[in-house]
Write a protein that binds this DNA or RNA. Structure first.
Lengths: 138, 138
DNA sequence: GCTTGAACCCGTAGCCACTACGGATTGTAC
DNA sequence: GTACAATCCGTAGTGGCTACGGGTTCAAGC
């Protein structure tokens, strides 16, 4: 085999083999050359592209976002403003998600702390989820 | 109609009508009585159960977690310790998710700030995703 | 050159938690 | 009685993978 096998690419990029095939199927990764026997044969540029995808996924970008970012990267035009805007929008989403989670964390933490793990009735965790306010519970 | 229609339940509980049918299908909600014509007819207890589910979902519990929590709530045995443990485990998950997102946020924020939206080459957003460290980029 | 066993092929189905569709039936208000 | 909203049901689609399984190919050892 001349190029990289899909398994080799999976190792080098840190992306699951099945996921690579999935990315190819949905058009996120280009169709690679094939060996005579039909096995996929990748090049170095595929490692870079796939690593880009992996990093962006780790940062929580959707595959649609990633597609747009990669198109910008290749377009060459004046991508920076657009890339910045995609990232900024994504940043906002992440920030609001963090805020949401922080609120959940506080409720949960308070709830878990109140629950002594003994009392059968009036379990604070269940009280909260039942919509009984903590004040009612005692 | 004697009881509550599915539409009414949807309104009162704040859960989408289709979602209610889905919950019934997967066994999370009990099968309600039916009118002569076959329409679902709900009781007040269904509002409570569904509201419990909704609140738990909003706190990020999985449906499997919720099923377990509701079983504890009904079992009556010594559920508090278990409910506490489910909630505590969930709290840990949320906390690590927050930590992850915080890291993403920092990277993204730094990235967006560095990107001036003008320079065609060396766009910081794309650099980061390309795995080029910020130091290399200049 | 031959054999073995790992790697790879492909299509399909499953996961979670919904949401949407669409044609048929029922409920309800006038 | 009629019009029209609400509900019925099964099925399919969403995103982002992951798993399965039976068949083929590759690469290394002898």
């Amino acid at each position: 085999m001349r190029g990289l096998s899909i398994g080799g690419l999976a190792q080098k990029s840190g992306v699951n083999l099945e996921t690579i095939r999935y990315y190819e199927r949905i058009g996120l990764m280009p169709k690679p050359d094939r060996t005579e026997g039909g096995h996929r044969s990748y090049e170095d540029s595929d490692i870079r592209r796939l690593s880009f995808i992996r990093r962006a996924r780790e940062l929580g970008f959707s595959l649609a976002d990633i597609e747009a970012l990669m198109a910008l990267d290749e377009g060459g035009g004046a991508p920076c403003a657009e890339a910045r805007s995609i990232a900024a929008t994504h940043l906002e989403k992440i920030e609001s998600k963090i805020a949401d989670l922080e609120r959940f964390r506080m409720v949960l933490k308070a709830t878990v702390l109140k629950c002594d793990g003994k009392s059968v009735k009036g379990c604070e965790v269940l009280n909260v989820l039942d919509g009984r306010s903590p004040e009612d519970a005692d």
